[in-house]
Design a protein around this nucleic acid. Structure first.
Lengths: 254, 254
DNA sequence: TCGAACTCCGTACACTGTACGCGGTTTTTA
DNA sequence: TAAAAACCGCGTACAGTGTACGGAGTTCGA
């Protein structure tokens, strides 16, 4: 009987994989054909190209030229694979050195780096970050990002709060982008086609007398950016607001 | 041959359902056993109790005492059902009248109302709001929330920007709550059990020399709120920051 | 009166994650 | 040196998902 007890959802097992800690004791049996990194990077490649839903165990296996069940000797299950994927891309993110620059510029760089991550890996926005993988990649990322809050006069708890707030904003924005992408992929309709189909009915049903502000503001917003919602604009607007909000806290501290 | 062309993903069809516009022309065939509201509220009940994944077509059908395929005479598919569910709960949200109060109080009320919505219906945070259902419920909600930005000196586009920013924050926070709930439901581990299992390995691997800020700040944050991440605290902190950020814009306008 | 349109729905299909167990390979132990 | 134990790869199978298709029964307009 293997020493594996209820493998799925075991935090220790997942962490051991994240940190690439080989199970203690001597190994027997035939040499492995693959290694964990190969599995993870095949999955990342799939997700980058075809979206998060493309990461099925069968698809990853096929990309690697093995049978689906073979993956389970490398990874306890799909959920853990996603954790590993996230930590892997966290490890690869560019980290600008902004030491000595003003805090606003440093935090802007952090936001930009995260935005770049989500641009390169849109699926990453969709996987939960609440309880982050806590692997080497995520930890290094966290360390780097905390450095941007050095010399702000904030205490440790506040630094975590500020960083969480900033990253949560960037992630929310990235999710909006990813959802728009997914919606287009599934429906096969771009924004113009959607409005062409929906417009007549909406015009009949959106009574300006009943919804004066909604109709007016909706039309203005739609005209300003080309579409109903422009995530790029929302990012620029939102980032400025977030930094202004943090400024009220940080500049008061010193 | 029915007049239905490629029913799934047809915006006009979905909008007609949202606004409860009966298809034109006379109806034949036997009287319907259910109506759309019954289907939607059965689905909402299921989601409220058992989470969004519990809303399967088979489960909804069983709750209503009909065969699964029967649902498809009321709703084009699961995606549209989710849109209808969202619009339904949007229609039911409490809307405080804060006319005459200062803008900060009005926006706080809007945030609070949305938070209450997500508390009552955690699944709602998970469904995309990028391109909102645009049904009567969502439209009335939008109208109400825009009223909170009356007399702020902002132009129409800015009002939409500000509201989107605020709501996006509240939704991101609600998603964190929902994800934590889902993680607990699936793993069967509460926060203490997770740390008990993960702690030893983390202690060995999180080298304070390599990750000085991460270890220090992580520990401080974990000690401050009981757990690794406290969404309640994040909400209070974040809302204050968001309002401060908007203040920099609004107070400059007048 | 008859066909069209509509009802509800049984069956079937493609797809998912993954439990179980088998045969072969390698290392450790007796 | 032989047996046992642990491991690899993986074929098969199962429960679950959304939903396409088409049939049987019902109601209405022509």
């Amino acid at each position: 009987m293997p020493t594996d007890r209820s493998s799925a959802g075991d935090p220790a097992r997942t962490l051991a994989l994240l940190w690439r800690e080989p199970p203690e004791g001597p190994r027997r049996g035939p040499a492995r054909a693959l290694d964990l990194d190969a599995v993870v990077s095949a999955a990342v490649g799939l997700a980058d190209r075809d979206g998060p839903d493309a990461v099925t165990m069968r698809a990853v296996a096929q990309a690697l030229g093995v049978a689906p069940m073979t993956l389970y000797t490398y990874v306890p299950g799909r959920a853990e694979l996603l954790d590993l994927m996230l930590d892997a891309v966290h490890a690869q993110t560019a980290r600008r050195d902004t030491a000595g620059r003003p805090w606003r510029e440093r935090l802007t760089a952090v936001a930009e780096e995260n935005r770049a991550l989500f641009t390169a890996h849109p699926w990453a926005a969709a996987v939960s970050t609440l309880r982050p993988p806590l692997g080497p990649g995520s930890t290094a990322k966290y360390e780097h990002e905390l450095a941007a809050l050095d010399d702000t006069g904030l205490d440790d708890v506040e630094r975590d709060d500020c960083l969480t707030h900033l990253l949560s904003f960037v992630q929310a924005n990235a999710r909006a982008v990813a959802e728009a992408q997914a919606a287009r992929r599934q429906s096969g309709l771009d924004d113009a086609q959607w409005w062409a189909a929906a417009g007549p009915l909406l015009a009949r049903v959106l009574d300006p007398a009943r919804y004066p502000r909604a109709v007016r503001v909706g039309a203005a917003a739609g005209a300003a950016h080309g579409s109903a919602h422009d995530p790029d604009h929302a990012y620029r607007f939102g980032l400025a607001r977030v930094l202004d909000g943090l400024a009220a806290l940080i500049d008061a501290r010193r």
